[in-house]
């Protein structure tokens, strides 16, 4: 009887403890789930903070590395043309000048050509060819810059030296301004060649962003313009371009950022000469080319530090250009969203 009672109580106990045990284990499981969720949340947040830390780290490391040069030369560093490792006198003017000139040449060519290619891809191209040509342009963007460099050095520069540069020099010999711009012996390498190679490199960026931006134009707008009898060109010039102006400029700035910071393609063909010449055919240097050419061979703290300071200037310039580009593209996105 006693045993029977015990049985009953045991059963009762079991009956009562079973839900409790389930509840307890469920709570444990929930706690574990909440914990893993919190850990995962923390991990992802940490990783995105790491991205922030990365950029701050780049800035701090560059400022730290550039400090000796900047404290020695002060602001004069920006406006000094001399670059003399023997007397340890360094100035950034020639590389800054070269960077700006080569990027300017590149944009001068890449912008109109890129816009026209995007015009072709969005308005004129037969449907069947649109995708392959678009992909081909993007592949051009994916080719590593060292390939452009080696091609520029062995194929493009000799071609420029033998054919293009003599032609320019002879044609413009008696034209006032142009005779200064296109003067001197045709070396093949130099600012002009570097600018042209940059143009080829930047072209795909300008094209693919312009195309994406043009594709975002609502078809009704274009159809309305076609409906009142506009030609294809008029639709593009007076409807598509004004509508996408902000985004297109954002795309240009992105391309410009690429051109300013491009290293290898330029290093091969720029000639690495630290002086400023009025002639575009003269060898020059850019910020990135100076660093790539001289950094490992730089002797002495001041020399190394001056090169890091050049890097800091380059980072500052591209940061501003890219920030403007992103801001403009963001504005277009919000405008498109509304």
């Amino acid at each position: 009887m006693a045993s029977g009672e015990q049985d009953v109580s045991e059963v009762a106990l079991k009956g009562a403890s079973a839900p409790m045990a389930v509840a307890a284990s469920r709570a444990a499981v929930l706690r574990r789930l909440r914990l893993t969720d919190a850990i995962f949340h923390g991990l992802t947040r940490g990783a995105s903070l790491a991205v922030l830390a990365l950029l701050s780290g780049v800035i701090i490391a560059l400022i730290y590395g550039a400090a000796p040069a900047l404290s020695t030369f002060g602001f004069g560093f920006l406006f000094d043309e001399s670059w003399n490792p023997v007397t340890e006198r360094f100035g950034a003017l020639a590389p800054i000048f070269g960077t700006l000139v080569t990027s300017f040449i590149a944009m001068l060519i890449a912008v109109p050509v890129g816009l026209m290619v995007a015009f072709f891809l969005t308005e004129l191209c037969p449907k069947m060819l649109r995708r392959p040509i678009g992909i081909a342009i993007e592949l051009l963007a994916g080719i590593p810059s060292i390939i452009y460099g080696i091609w520029g050095l062995f194929v493009f520069a000799p071609f420029m030296q033998e054919h293009v540069q003599p032609l320019f020099i002879n044609t413009f010999a008696n034209v006032p301004v142009l005779s200064t711009l296109f003067a001197g012996p045709p070396y093949g390498i130099g600012m002009f060649t570097a600018g042209l190679i940059l143009a080829i490199m930047v072209l795909p960026f300008v094209t693919s962003i312009s195309r994406d931006v043009f594709d975002a134009v609502p078809p009704v707008l274009k159809e309305a313009a076609y409906g009142v009898g506009c030609t294809t060109w008029e639709v593009f010039r007076y409807v598509v371009l004004p509508f996408t102006r902000v985004g297109v400029i954002g795309g240009f700035m992105l391309g410009l950022g690429r051109a300013l910071g491009e290293t290898m393609a330029v290093t091969f063909v720029i000639g690495n000469a630290h002086h400023i010449s009025a002639s575009l055919f003269a060898p020059g240097t850019t910020i990135s080319a100076s660093i790539a050419n001289e950094f490992t061979e730089a002797v002495g703290d001041l020399y190394t530090s001056s090169l890091v300071a050049l890097g800091l200037i380059l980072f500052f310039i591209t940061f501003c250009v890219l920030a403007i580009a992103r801001y403009l593209l963001l504005r277009l996105q919000q405008q498109g969203g509304k």
């Binding site: 995105s48 903070l49 991205v51 922030l52 990365l54 950029l55 780290g57 780049v58 490391a61 560059l62 730290y64 590395g65 992105l254 950022g257 690429r258 300013l260 910071g261 491009e262 290293t263 990135s288 660093i291 790539a292 950094f295 090169l307 890091v308 890097g311 380059l314 980072f315 591209t318 940061f319 890219l322 920030a323 992103r326």
Partner: peptide, 22 residues
């Protein structure tokens, strides 16, 4: 982070080299 990431995405790679050197 999105903005900073976009900047890093197109930052000149030679500057990244300088950073790691430092």
């Amino acid at each position: 982070v999105r903005f900073i990431n976009d900047i890093l995405l197109s930052a000149p790679s030679i500057v990244i080299g300088l950073f790691v050197y430092e």
